[in-house]
Nucleic acid binder design. Structure first.
Lengths: 239, 239
DNA sequence: CACGGTTGATACGCTACCGTACACAGGAGC
DNA sequence: GCTCCTGTGTACGGTAGCGTATCAACCGTG
């Protein structure tokens, strides 16, 4: 987690939530903001000492992970430029459980809790935060259902599609070991699923790098949860 | 969903959220409140026509269900006297997906969205709603993880424990077919899991009725998610 | 160049769970 | 009593995914 000396004015608007703020609200919010660069596997947030800080991904992607006592772990959410990490900070509520790690290298705008809470009575920011909270709830509900009902193959396809959207690119770095941790499954299981997709010419895998060749067929291999979650994110910004 | 003619003053406080409101806020909120009696399997809320209404269970228990296109369904959350259904109404946000059905007979306090939103700037109600929203997020995260990692047997035990807490009684009505719908699994699978628990003397099953004989051992048969979710609900009311 | 670490493919037996079926018991209605 | 419906137990073969292991290909480093 290396810090960059760079003013937030440079490119704050790459984040959809920030983008929807009127100028005056953004002005007020941005005073204490800072842009930092995250690298894959950086721990952004941990149970032990939750920072009083919110993070708005500009180009980075962050995954939220649940940890079990026996060491098992699984991703329960992921955050790109459509969202934020640290809603609990804005809500003045009890902290999130688990930890959050960086998934794809990139920048995040990062904001002290005090600043965010001070600005949170601004009408549009408040409205967006409330809508984003509900969106988070709806997405988590769909994820819970997906984990309960759908196969590793379907969930692999869904994960690849979502990450592709976040990366904004059909190519992105990813190892099967990493993906298996996200899905809470075996590395070998992911290898099987990805192998099938590869044999069908839908994706190409090569040493820590993946290329989505046919996103339409990948969407067919995925469960409907991909589509539903994508739509749910979009609903935040519906009038 | 039969309506009772009964003033909310009778017993509004059976709900933990309402119980934590100061008198003046409760006064203001209760003006348009109404208490209704729900019966098991009543549909409280549906995707098609989401009511602008919030529900605070007093003695009833409500389950929120996700529905897939192929007809599969699974419970992603459940609400008892510790919570509420209709957070999205209070947040002024996009509606919940899926549907909500009554799980255990009982009363709920029900409140028009307009009243709730009008009252939501009251400091303590606002604070509670924000904390409950975060709690909902944390619980859903744990549920998503649980569905991805834990066995039908563990999840059966967890579900029974949670329902026992909501019912406030070691005896409550439940068919295995119903439970299998909640878990998103086969009826036969639940029958196996419940059969094991019964052979071990932990529970007793009899034609739509269950009796929890040994909740300590039932908790051992469950995954840690029971404990975590219970603690998460309690955190809403931590100072 | 040789080496060790990383990544991906694949194989083994095993278990959990699936989809489906059927038998049986309890209760309600006739 | 008998019949029908609901709820439960259990059986069958099939499959998905587990835990574990091995091997080959690739890469960076010395």
């Amino acid at each position: 987690m290396k810090r960059h000396i760079r003013t937030p004015e440079t490119n704050p608007l790459a984040n959809d939530l920030l983008q929807h703020l009127p100028a005056d609200e953004w002005q007020r919010l941005s005073e204490d903001a800072q842009i930092i660069t995250l690298h894959a596997a950086d721990v952004v947030f941990s149970d032990d000492e939750p920072p009083d800080m919110a993070f708005f991904p500009l180009t980075a992607m962050i995954s939220t992970m649940a940890l079990m006592r026996d060491g098992d772990e699984i991703e329960y959410g992921s955050i790109g430029r459509e969202g934020m990490l640290g809603l609990q900070v804005a809500l003045g509520a009890q902290p999130l459980r688990g930890r959050a790690i960086c998934q794809l290298d990139g920048e995040v705008l990062c904001l002290p809790g005090t600043s965010l809470r001070r600005a949170a009575d601004a009408p549009e920011l408040h409205r967006l935060l409330m809508r984003y909270a509900q969106s988070t709830i709806n997405v988590l509900a769909q994820s819970a259902a997906c984990n309960g009902l759908h196969s590793v193959r379907e969930r692999t396809a869904r994960w690849l599609l979502m990450t592709r959207d976040r990366a904004g690119d059909d190519n992105f770095p990813l190892t099967q070991a990493f993906l298996s941790k996200m899905l809470g499954s075996r590395r070998a299981g992911v290898s099987d699923a990805a192998g099938d997709l590869q044999r069908d010419g839908i994706i190409e895998y090569e040493r820590g790098h993946i290329h989505v060749r046919d996103s339409v067929r990948l969407e067919r291999a995925s469960c409907e949860c991909y589509e539903r979650i994508r739509d749910e994110y979009a609903r935040v910004f519906d009038t």
